[in-house]
Design a protein around this nucleic acid. Structure first.
Length: 467
RNA sequence: GGUCCCAUCGUCUAGUGGCCUAGGACGUAGCCCUCUCAAGGCUAAAACACGGGUUCGACUCCCGUUGGGACCGCCA
């Protein structure tokens, strides 16, 4: 049985990189009908917050990445780590280190300044008893001092590390809390994790962890290190690169399935296919199709994918999804109701012109609002003396229309166009500005029908007055 | 500085020794369609980092160079 986990530390919101890691673990679990576990790595008490935990869960839920176990919290499992530390201590696989944090920091800085590798020198390794007046000790793990450590990575292949490069790292702080490289192993052992799928940035930690597994007498899981996600400047994606929090995209009107699709394609591929349903992703996902090189996050492509997914979302669903955006921009009020069929019709007309729910909501405004204010630019360009007679004729023609449907509306326009001997554009654009306030919209006949007789006539009259 | 990883169009990628005069997608440009804007269709520009090998034959295998990234914490 495949058991994988996503183990974020709650020191920030769920970001693009973390979401991709979570997604790959989730896809792997779902593909193999395994178990996806959520574990919060909050041993850094000073930087972890409840708020970020909630935010991360919110992000995962939005993406639809449901977990089968957890969320476990490392801070709730401290006794477990303690017992493992005691065991290693007793077995002579770990020892107390009495160097103070300040000393260590000073030595590291000096090493760096002298161009030496900033590694712990192991001075406390063979201490028989604590030095006099020593501060509370930390506990270090005894790494082998010779030989090599081999890691068989599912994505990278074999990776070899020289043990002389590894130093005795701290597994228990002097305040009694355990550190990452230790807890991650204890937890993965305790939770029966079979595959560790995580970011590339952990590859260098892997040999340390492998030795902990061995000291614990446990066979390490399979490792798969995912390539990093980079910003446009090719450095690791971070806040500097703009919106990196997943929920920020939700608020910008992106669909979770589009985000999932995009994230999946960042580092993974399935032939030439670009657009995937979540179902397909689960079906096709395989670690062997994950690439090795880092990928640059491309918002343009995400936007395109969002447009694709938007169009394949049922109108009834879109109606619900766009509502919060309409509320937020004040187009509708809390508790207000609109005819569902009508709203869906309006959405349908705008769908292929919208890439996000936000854009959709913005366009929807002129359909729903009682009145609109023509944009200055558009007004200057199309609402003037020359277009006045067209507007008046269209108004007259439409006033006489009993049956306010697209086909009949079109006849009115054709008539006006013929009478004046001008192109349709000459008539359509001023009308468009009059009823939508701008120069861009779906086909004008369709817009008028959806808008309805009352609003159309009122806005036309208003525009004529404006000239 | 040390260690590790990576290297195909601007970007995401296909490619697993001959199918490649390197395919798809985003983006960009042009044309068509057209009441505006989209959508759609067609077309175009655009890449195997470099140098050595191995081989009858390398984008594909090996080595080196260069470039980029990550890690080197009593952070995760």
């Amino acid at each position: 049985m495949v058991r994988v986990r996503f183990a974020p530390s709650p020191t920030g919101h769920l970001h693009i990189g973390g979401a991709r890691t979570a997604l790959f673990n989730w896809l792997f679990a779902r593909h193999h009908r395994g178990v996806f576990i959520l574990r919060i790595e909050d041993t850094d008490r000073s930087r972890s917050t409840e708020e970020f935990i909630h935010s991360i869960l919110e992000g995962l839920r939005w993406l639809g990445l449901d977990w089968d176990e957890g969320p476990y919290r490392q801070t709730e499992r401290l006794e477990l780590y303690q017992s493992y530390v005691q065991r290693l201590l007793k077995e002579g696989r770990a020892y107390h280190c009495y160097c103070s944090a300040q000393e260590l920091e000073a030595r590291r800085r000096q090493a760096l300044a002298e161009g030496r590798p900033p590694r712990y020198d192991g001075r406390c390794r063979d201490l028989q008893e604590p030095p006099r007046g020593a501060p509370p000790p930390s506990v270090r793990f005894k790494m082998p001092q010779a030989g090599q450590t081999h890691v068989q990575d599912l994505i990278r292949g074999p990776v070899v590390f020289e043990n002389t490069q590894l130093d005795d790292f701290i597994i228990l702080r002097s305040d009694g809390t355990p550190t990452y490289n230790f807890v991650v192993v204890v937890d993965d052992v305790d939770m029966g994790i079979t595959h560790v799928i995580r970011g590339d940035d952990h590859l260098n930690n892997t040999p340390k962890q492998v030795h902990i597994y061995r000291a614990l007498g446990v066979e390490p899981p399979r490792f798969a290190h995912l390539p990093m996600i980079l910003g446009p400047d090719k450095t690791r994606l971070s806040k500097r690169h703009g919106a990196t929090s997943v929920v920020a995209y939700r608020d910008m009107g992106y669909l979770p399935q589009a985000m999932v699709n995009y994230l999946a394609r960042l580092g993974w591929s399935h032939g030439d296919q670009e657009v995937f349903t979540v179902r397909e992703l689960i079906q096709y996902f395989d670690l062997k199709d994950v690439g090795k090189s880092a990928a640059v996050f491309n918002p343009e492509k995400l936007l395109w994918l969002n447009a694709q997914h938007l169009r394949s979302t049922p109108l009834s669903e879109l109606r619900e999804l766009v509502w919060p955006f309409l509320l937020r921009q004040g187009t509708v009020k809390e508790g207000q109701r609109l005819n569902a069929a009508w709203l869906e019709r309006a959405i349908g007309s705008l769908l292929e012109r919208s890439r996000t729910l936000l854009e959709l909501a913005q366009s929807l405004h002129y359909y729903i609002a009682e009145d609109i204010e023509p944009q200055e630019e558009a007004r200057k360009k199309f609402l003037h003396q020359e277009s006045l007679p067209y507007l008046k004729d269209v108004l007259k023609g439409l006033e006489a229309l009993e049956d306010f449907r697209q086909a009949r509306i079109e006849e009115v326009f054709k008539e006006v166009v013929q009478r004046h001997g001008v192109k349709l554009a000459k008539v359509a654009q001023p009308v468009r500005v009059a009823v939508t306030g701008g120069t861009v919209s779906p086909g004008i006949f369709e817009v008028l029908e959806i808008l309805g007789r009352q609003k159309t006539l009122r806005r036309l009259r208003r525009a004529i007055e404006l000239i």
